[in-house]
């Protein structure tokens, strides 16, 4: 399954720009001087072992965590210097797909999808909300699951609904946290296809956090390898995969054994 590379990457327009980013939790240094740029229309996969701070990085990008040092600009806005109102406006332009899907337990699929829309666009009529829900359900191929509760969905379906919930706000950037974690190979392939379709259809720029090499290879224009809180290597997937660096090789070998 090869990635369909029909999209245009605008190297002139930076949608995310990170410089000198540091983050620690107590004595544990997680991010240790990250510099990174995401261009418009680009998909970047961030690889790394568990606990290397991949999820922390995207949580900092969306303003869920504050860095100890460093600057993050998203869509030209300094994420951590914004007031509440501006941060809310920025977050509407960034979609975040959680590792656990984070669907609201007490709401059915329709309510899960309609909730962010009705809370942020109160002027919309019921019909307009219904149409938007139908449209995103169509995009993730789950049109018939509208009335089901999250507990009645499979892991893959939950991931799809999680992605649909972010798509309903029509984001310009998508941040995927371990989109294929805990899924069987067939469902993983479906999610990978969905990530590519989302980019084609919604023209998003994406960061995909993963330790799944198949996912990284099939979704990314560039791949970044996070090691000891820094990007050890950034480049094309094959370029990184064929490296002679012993530390990076260790990760790949481990992945293949798995």
């Amino acid at each position: 399954m090869d990635k369909i590379k029909q999209h245009f990457i605008d190297k002139e327009e930076q949608v995310i720009s990170i410089s000198g980013l540091y983050k620690s939790f107590g004595d544990l240094k997680v991010l240790n001087g990250i510099d990174f740029t995401l261009y418009k229309g680009e998909n970047v996969a961030i690889l790394g072992k568990s606990g290397t701070g991949k999820s922390v990085l995207i949580k900092i990008i969306v303003g869920l965590l504050r860095p100890d040092r460093g600057e993050v600009f998203a869509l030209g806005k300094p994420v951590h210097s914004l007031n509440h109102k501006d941060l809310d406006a920025l977050r509407l332009r960034i979609g975040f797909s959680f590792q656990s899907s984070a669907l609201y337990d007490g709401m059915n699929v329709y309510q899960n999808l309609a909730f962010p829309l009705t809370m942020n666009a109160k002027h919309l009529t019921k019909k307009e909300v219904d149409t938007a829900v139908e449209k995103v359900l169509d995009a993730v191929n789950l049109r018939n699951k509208k009335k089901q509760m999250p507990s009645e969905l499979s892991g893959g379906q939950r991931k799809r609904i999680g992605i649909a919930r972010t798509l309903i706000l029509k984001p310009e950037i998508m941040l995927y946290d371990e989109p294929t974690a805990g899924l069987d190979p067939i469902t993983s392939t479906e999610i990978i296809q969905l990530i590519n379709e989302v980019q084609q259809r919604y023209n998003t720029s994406s960061i995909i956090i993963t330790h799944d090499l198949t996912c990284a290879r099939n979704t990314s224009d560039r791949t970044a390898m996070l090691l000891d809180g820094r990007f050890a290597k950034v480049g094309q997937f094959d370029e990184i995969f064929n490296t002679e660096d012993q530390h990076l090789k260790e990760f790949y070998n481990y992945n293949f054994i798995q």
């Binding site: 406006a89 959680f98 984070a102 007490g106 909730f115 809370m119 942020n120 706000l169």
Partner: peptide
Amino acid sequence: AELGSMKVTEQIEAMEVSSIHPFKY
């Protein structure tokens, strides 16, 4: 229990990233 479960399953963070103020709501 309800809020605790929402917190540990990242539902509260999901609200935040959708620009819904979880504290208020």
